[in-house]
Design a binder for these strands. Structure first.
Length: 489
DNA sequence: TTTTGAGTTGTTCGA
DNA sequence: GTCGAACAACTCAAA
């Protein structure tokens, strides 16, 4: 048994040393009590068992990076349910305190609440902190004390709150415990490697998971791309977005850090105040997604608008497969889906277009889109992914009018006018002229053959047909919903 | 309590 | 080719 009392620092979605309030508290506690800090990560079968392949790949590298920052072989890894793991560590050592940063999805909240209750019953000091958000979901309230359903008033209310605290530097010294719990496993035993074969080459090429990588990404963004962000953020070939989302996913960098770094930049460059505010409002969307997640019953499965409970989504396995594999015949859609498959990432504008085509033109269930994004996207998280699919599915609280249906040809011509993005990801269309790159079905047969594009599929559905069918389905649903409502009164 | 203005991201049609 | 209007009706949030 260790002589000094131990505080467990339970890492979850906060795989960093800087601006980590739970870690700071654990170090402070250790200093005051002559104790030691035991850094722990638990691959919780219940919660992390749901993680998709791309996020598992990221997690594996992020854990490796965090362990390295701690000095190597210092982060203790476990598999199992969190309560069991914590109990086993408590049984082995003199654990008197437990610290973590909060999660906001319902399964995690339920788990954490039970653990906290149990801890208090057994005399274990247990404290949680905000390490993941600029504002706690329950602190942002409407005039009547409720939660927000619309982004703009939500973000206005956020900006009126006391600003997020300045980020704290990593602790000078972490008094690490020098024990090795008997239940701990190796990184390999967490079994996070891509299966059944290593498909993650494209991910590794594009991203560097870990706290240092996150920081480098932020500073590169601020120095090189923030200036153009507001003007060019919708153009997928321009690559001016921050691409910080996967780093935020596991908390390799805190949103406070991003907030203050960009604010500081805007102070020094007043001409960039507007583009900075635009970027910060995207952090606001992340906040809003967590706000809605926290207040929703089950954001990933239950439509926020009850009328959608019985929407006649079409189950078409073949169409879904073509969408997933980038064979819809709509170049901008296929480019996005192939970018996703190869790199674990997709530009935000393109995410909206592919989502719209699945949900509107194909009448595919938004939950099928959500599941695919969960499986393949490196930044898939319970808040952003579910929130965004509800939004594009039209069943979010702030639904777009039913007639607002993205036309993948117009969107392509508007945001990828030279077809640079399409040519990168759909190489069989490379030799088509710009005028046909977004609608190859209009090319004469001979032109297609001459360009080597003959193998490219015809559209999975006619644009006109898909649009009309979607609008009809929506009208029908509204009619039914109104009828049922009227029926009850 | 009632009223009022507003609501991320669009497309099509016809003049 | 360009431009404005139409596309519905509803909910949210604050005054």
């Amino acid at each position: 048994m260790s002589a000094s009392p131990i505080a467990i620092m339970w890492f979850r979605n906060d795989l960093r040393l800087a601006d980590n309030p739970a870690l700071m508290a654990a170090c402070r506690w250790a200093g005051q009590n002559g104790g030691r800090v035991l850094p722990v990560f638990i691959y919780d079968d219940v919660i992390d068992g749901q993680l998709g392949g791309a996020t598992r790949w990221w997690l594996r590298h992020s854990l490796q990076s965090l362990d390295h920052s701690l000095g190597g072989q210092k982060l203790h890894l476990f598999r199992g349910t969190a309560q069991d793991v914590l109990t086993s560590v408590q049984a082995e050592y003199q654990v008197t305190a437990l610290f973590w940063n909060r999660c906001y999805d319902r399964p995690s909240i339920t788990r954490d609440t039970a653990i906290k209750t149990h801890a208090h019953q057994t005399g274990l000091m247990c404290e949680s902190f905000n390490g993941q958000l600029l504002f706690e979901p329950w602190d942002v309230k409407t005039g009547s004390g409720g939660s927000f359903k619309v982004f703009s008033p939500f973000w206005r209310a956020c900006l009126k709150m006391p600003p997020p605290a300045a980020p704290q530097a990593a602790p000078d010294h972490i008094p690490l415990a020098t024990v090795t719990p008997s239940q701990a496993v190796s990184l390999a035993e967490l079994d996070l490697a891509p299966k059944p074969f290593d498909w993650a080459g494209g991910l590794a090429e594009r991203f560097t998971p870990g706290e240092a990588g996150a920081r480098a990404q932020l500073h590169d963004f601020i120095d090189e791309r923030l200036i153009d962000y507001a003007a060019l953020r919708d153009y997928p070939d321009q690559r001016v977005t921050s691409e910080l989302s996967p780093h935020l996913r596991f908390g390799e960098i805190s949103p406070r850090h991003i907030w203050h770094a960009t604010a500081h930049h805007a102070d020094a460059h007043p001409a960039q105040a507007q583009t900075t505010a635009k970027f910060q409002s995207e952090l606001g969307w992340r906040e809003f997604a967590h706000h809605v997640l926290f207040h929703a019953k089950d954001l990933a499965t239950i439509p926020l608008q009850p009328a959608f409970a019985r929407f006649p989504w079409v189950q078409d396995a073949d169409a879904l497969k073509r969408w997933q594999t980038g064979q819809t015949g709509f170049p901008i859609v296929d480019a996005g889906m192939r970018e996703l498959w190869h790199t674990g990432y997709m530009h935000n504008r393109v995410r909206m277009i592919v989502g719209s085509v699945l949900v509107k033109h194909l009448l595919g269930d938004w939950r099928d889109g959500l599941a695919w994004f969960d499986a393949t996207l490196v930044d898939a998280c319970p808040a952003n992914n579910a929130f965004s699919w509800q939004w594009i599915g039209g069943c979010g609280a702030d639904a777009a009018p039913y007639f607002r249906i993205f036309n993948p040809v117009l969107q392509g011509e508007k945001f990828d006018p030279k077809g640079v993005y399409v040519r990168q990801w759909v190489p069989e269309l490379r030799n088509l002229p710009d005028t046909l790159i977004h609608k190859p079905w209009e090319a004469p047969r001979l032109v297609l053959i001459g360009a080597g594009a003959a193998s490219y599929p015809d559209p999975v559905i006619g644009l006109r047909q898909g649009r009309d069918r979607a609008m009809a389905a929506w009208r029908e649903m509204k009619k039914t919903a109104n009828f049922e409502e009227g029926d009850m009164t």
